[in-house]
Simulated assay, not measured.
Amino acid sequence: MDWARRIELCTVVVAAVVVVVGLWYSNVQTRQANDQVRNDRALAKVGQITDRYTAAVGNLGEDKTDVRLGGIYALQRIMQDSRRDQPTIANVLATYLRTHAAKPPAKGQDVPADVHAALTALATRDTTRDRAFLLDLYATKLPNIDLSITATSATELHGVNLSGADLRGAALSSTDLRGADLDGADLRHTELEDAT
């Protein structure tokens, strides 16, 4: 084989190696760029959830019922969107209930819409996301509350602390109350058909 042929072959091999190395480097750069974009999106999503959470919690302290309802529904949506935030949000809503349902409604009045919405959000949450969260509705006053039609499936209140709660006349049909603490709860005239 003559020198010209060898040089030509070496040139082709070197060119092929340069192309392969270039493709490899380009692939690495593209992968790193894609990883960075994914990380940026994840951070943006966390930031959006944090902003939504902050605004929703702020709405809970407002005077107008419709603003508080908006905050409750926003928190419920965040619970659905963010598995890791559910226990925190459920705790906020439970605290809201213990605070806003500490006294029974005035005679002839129903449970306020915001209290009902918060209880519905808690009762219809995906309990598999709760981790160590245990629903505590100690001494809440929820007479005549109707949870029988709030969910397409059974309402989830298993393990809930309802000790001392006022549930007179409540509609709790198909509600899962397994392991619930009902010590001292007022259950007179409570509808418990198909409750477990």
Rank of each mutant, 00 (worst) to 15 (best):
W3S: 11
R5Q: 15
R6L: 15
R6D: 10
I7W: 05
I7S: 10
C10P: 02
T11S: 08
T11M: 02
V12Q: 10
V14W: 12
V14R: 06
A15H: 08
A15M: 15
A16C: 13
A16I: 13
V18Y: 04
V18H: 06
V20F: 14
V20S: 10
V20G: 14
G22F: 05
G22V: 06
L23E: 08
W24R: 12
Y25F: 14
S26P: 00
Q32R: 15
Q32N: 14
D35P: 00
Q36P: 03
R38M: 14
N39T: 07
D40T: 12
A42L: 15
L43E: 13
A44Q: 10
G47I: 09
G47P: 07
G47V: 07
Q48Y: 06
I49K: 06
A55R: 14
V57D: 01
N59A: 04
L60R: 01
E62W: 00
E62H: 09
D63L: 09
T65Q: 09
V67N: 02
I72R: 06
I72G: 01
Y73N: 12
Y73M: 03
A74G: 01
L75N: 01
Q76C: 00
I78D: 08
Q80V: 06
Q80S: 09
Q80A: 11
Q86P: 02
Q86F: 08
Q86M: 14
T88V: 13
T88P: 00
L93F: 03
A94L: 10
T95M: 11
Y96I: 10
R98P: 03
T99L: 12
T99R: 11
P105S: 11
A106T: 04
A106Y: 02
A106K: 02
K107C: 00
G108I: 04
D110A: 15
A113W: 10
A113F: 09
A117H: 05
A117R: 00
A121E: 04
A121C: 04
L122G: 02
T124H: 04
R125H: 11
D126G: 00
T128W: 02
R129P: 01
T140S: 14
L142R: 01
I145P: 00
D146P: 12
S148V: 06
S148T: 09
A151F: 10
A151P: 05
S153M: 02
S153F: 05
T155H: 07
L157G: 08
H158R: 15
G159C: 11
G159I: 03
L162S: 04
A165D: 04
R168N: 11
G169L: 05
G169W: 04
A170P: 08
S173N: 09
S173P: 00
S174R: 15
D176L: 05
L177F: 12
L182A: 06
D183W: 11
D186P: 03
L187I: 13
H189N: 12
H189T: 10
T190Y: 05
T190N: 03
E191S: 13
E191M: 12
L192D: 08
L192W: 07
L192F: 05
A195T: 12
